[in-house]
Computed example of a mutant assay.
Amino acid sequence: MKHWVRFSLVAGAMLAGGSAQAADQLLNMPIEKALATPAAKERVDPSIKLLFGFNKLPGAHDGQSFKTVKRMRRPIDNSRATGGPPPPGDEELCATIFIQAVQELQQRATKDGGNAVVDIRSNWKDDETASDSTYVCAKGSAYLGVALKGMVVKAGG
């Protein structure tokens, strides 16, 4: 019986150690580079102003907080087996997910009668990071993800 208990404790410790290693790796990615991609030029609405970090828009009113979370399953690299091109890298995938999250913030602004989203921050698992130059992309073993939180406002002008 003692051996069974000892084995259970060792197995439990190994599983706990493995789950600690499976935690997300948080990557700081450049906002400007993501917004300069061809996908961003197609999908991001230039009429809905975006301000990242703790930036506010003078004269803005009727602010309403909104959070969006976007995840993408990491593509399986079977390019060696099929002879095809390798899947996109983390930077490209993170930029794609970021653009989807920005697009959702803008859609919410339009739906709520706003014309800007300000105070946009990364908010992965409720851990907020404010920057006007980078966003956080979470890299897990099976997925990549971006979570943004912003304030939808109506700016006069």
Rank of each mutant, 00 (worst) to 15 (best):
K2D: 15
K2T: 14
H3V: 13
V5S: 08
V5A: 09
V10Q: 02
A11F: 08
A13V: 05
M14I: 12
L15S: 03
L15I: 02
G18M: 12
G18C: 13
S19C: 13
A22K: 00
A23F: 09
L26T: 13
L27I: 13
N28Q: 11
N28E: 14
M29R: 03
I31P: 08
I31Q: 03
E32R: 10
K33H: 14
K33A: 14
A34P: 07
A34L: 05
A36T: 02
P38V: 08
D45N: 13
P46Q: 08
S47T: 06
S47H: 05
I48S: 02
I48A: 04
K49D: 06
L51H: 09
G53V: 10
F54D: 13
K56D: 09
K56Q: 04
K56W: 05
D62G: 07
Q64T: 06
S65C: 04
T68G: 09
R71P: 08
R73K: 11
S79P: 02
R80Y: 02
A81Q: 12
P86Q: 03
P86V: 00
D90L: 03
E91W: 07
C94M: 08
C94F: 04
I97H: 12
I99D: 10
Q100D: 14
A101W: 01
A101V: 01
V102F: 04
E104N: 15
L105Q: 07
Q106C: 12
Q106L: 12
R108M: 11
R108I: 11
A109M: 00
K111V: 14
D112N: 15
N115M: 04
V117W: 05
S122Q: 09
S122F: 05
D127E: 12
T134L: 11
C137Q: 13
C137H: 06
A138G: 06
G140T: 00
S141H: 08
Y143A: 01
Y143K: 06
L144N: 14
G145V: 03
V146R: 07
